[in-house]
Nucleic acid binder design. Structure first.
Length: 216
DNA sequence: ACCCAGGTGGCCC
DNA sequence: GGGCCACATGGG
């Protein structure tokens, strides 16, 4: 396998796209909910669901936790898998409410402990847990997603079906453990993948020589 | 009429 | 530890 020059890869991406350091969403609750709703779902569909929740004045831990199931399903319907997501999301939020009282208190705990608690909840797997720890709680937890796997495969020849933890270890062992870097590196992966998806497959001059894997 | 999208959990071996 | 499947909407 080609040697993983991850800092160089990051610098190349940042040079092209600029510093991003992002997660779409203005409040911690919005980030938290977005991380769950975007599971195997395009972000544009998640935006519709979040807009519905906002319009209904429902972006509130307690309201969401106790909203009638049918209503929650209707509001998040555009995000897909809506029955499953409504049930799991409500269950997760009730759990946080019961055990911690507020999202702030929950997110305030140690990063490793937070990740463990998140993984115990039905509906939160590795990627969602890391997304929440990193972007909602502001603690270093590197996010691996389909884009990350695809680009790493394209650039370094890692297996496309590499296990989540394996790729995560591979990356974190080679870069500084900094929240800003973790956030921005993931953002760069997403930005790059989106600009090189099959809607815009032109990769002429691409410094990372990857185009999401759709056409080559 | 397909294929895809910032996954997860259940069940099986 | 994997391999397969259901879950569901909206866009190309």
């Amino acid at each position: 396998m080609k040697k993983l020059q991850l800092v160089e890869l990051y610098d190349t991406l940042k040079g092209r796209y600029g510093f991003l350091d992002w997660w779409p969403g203005e409040t911690r609750l919005e980030i938290f909910i977005g991380a769950i709703l975007t599971q195997n779902t395009s972000w544009s569909n998640v935006e519709k669901a979040i807009a519905n929740l906002k319009a209904a004045g429902a972006l509130d831990l307690h309201r969401l936790a106790h909203m009638r199931r049918g209503k929650l399903e209707a509001l998040i319907r555009p995000s897909g898998f809506y029955r499953q997501k409504a049930e799991r999301l409500a269950s997760i939020l009730r759990h946080i409410e019961d055990d911690y009282g507020s999202l702030e208190t929950f997110l305030d705990m140690d990063g490793q402990a937070l990740r463990s608690r998140l993984l115990e909840m039905k509906g939160i797997g590795s990627e969602t847990a890391d997304s929440i720890v990193l972007y909602a709680a502001d603690k270093p937890s590197f996010v691996i997603d389909a884009y990350t796997k695809r680009i790493m495969h394209r650039v370094y020849g890692t297996r496309e079906d590499i296990a989540y933890g394996d790729l995560q270890n591979l990356i974190v062992q080679r870069i500084p453990k900094k929240v800003r870097l973790y956030k921005d590196f993931h953002a760069q992966f997403v930005e790059h993948a989106k600009l090189h998806c099959r809607k815009a497959p032109s990769c002429k001059g691409c410094p990372v020589r990857t185009f999401c894997g759709y056409n080559g």
